[in-house]
């Protein structure tokens, strides 16, 4: 029993089944990430004025990830084109690079998360937020000591730093700031529970990363064990690559919006 239009396109719609299926699925994914973007918007406009951070995240790893995804998008579509044109070797190389890029993305993201977990923030009673590196041996029950980030991400934080800088002596060492626990209202490293910004940042990038992993698994399968179909039913195989490619490009699309929204704006 053969399902019609599995490989050949249906004349009036011009589509084969899986292509329609993946576009429908992508429409639902637009609404999924849309729900998360709506959360971002409302948490941001509803945040305590001055507490929502601006460019608090390191740009380096994120920029690297953006380039990795752009490259993988190009190689994915090249891999599909090579398979379609019957160039098996090129298909293997391009698709292989795509999988490696996906793994690189996950690796860089893990490195980035690790970096976040090692940055700390302190919020005082007057809503001043100061972020920086923790000085562990000068942090105890009575005080918290930070080496503050040179570029603070909130207005109040910047002012606080300037005030501290005026009185302090400029030695060759990094400036350390000590906070009395009694004055501190909130203290944590950068984890999802730190603030609504970090909640939405970790959730969105985490869900996106899960999609990267999912896509990587599928593309790896098509590169490896599944590539047998290249020889038994090439047209069907090329369709599968196209469908996987569409999903992969969508994953890149989401990142194209995530990157400026979370890291730049």
């Amino acid at each position: 029993m053969q399902i019609p239009y599995e490989v050949e396109a249906r004349p009036d719609t011009g589509l084969y089944n899986a292509k329609l299926g993946i576009w429908l699925f992508l429409a639902s994914e637009v609404m999924l990430f849309g729900g998360l973007f709506s959360a971002y918007i409302f948490l941001r406009i509803g945040a305590e004025p001055g507490l929502w951070p601006h460019q608090i995240l390191e740009l380096g790893p994120a920029f690297a990830n953006t380039m990795v995804l752009i490259i993988s998008s190009v190689t994915m579509v090249m891999g599909w084109a090579s398979a379609k044109l019957g160039e098996y070797k090129k298909f293997k190389i391009f698709t292989g690079i795509t999988v490696l890029c996906a793994l690189a993305f996950v690796g860089i993201k893990s490195y980035e998360y690790h970096g976040d977990f090692n940055r700390y923030g302190v919020i005082l009673a007057d809503k001043t937020q100061v972020t920086g590196e923790l000085v562990k041996d000068k942090t105890n029950d009575r005080q918290i000591t930070l080496i503050p980030d040179a570029k603070q991400s909130t207005e109040l934080g910047r002012e606080y730093l300037k005030k501290q800088g005026e009185g302090a002596e400029k030695s060759g060492e990094e400036q350390e700031l000590a906070f009395d626990r009694k004055d501190v209202v909130w203290f944590s490293n950068f984890v999802p529970s730190y603030s609504t910004f970090f909640s939405v940042y970790f959730t969105m990038t985490g869900l996106h990363a899960l999609h990267v992993i999912g896509g990587a698994v599928v593309i790896f399968y098509l590169w490896g064990p599944g590539s047998r179909m290249y020889f038994t039913d090439r047209k069907h195989f090329v369709n599968r690559l196209e469908v996987a490619g569409l999903f992969w490009h969508f994953v890149e699309l989401v990142w194209i919006f995530l990157f400026p929204v979370l890291y730049l704006l």
């Binding site: 576009w23 994915m76 490619g245």
Partner: peptide
């Protein structure tokens, strides 16, 4: 990305 990588340019109307 949508027009060229995802071939939306030239795709059928339903999509």
């Amino acid at each position: 990305v949508m027009a060229f990588f995802m071939h939306l340019k030239g795709e059928k109307k339903f999509v």
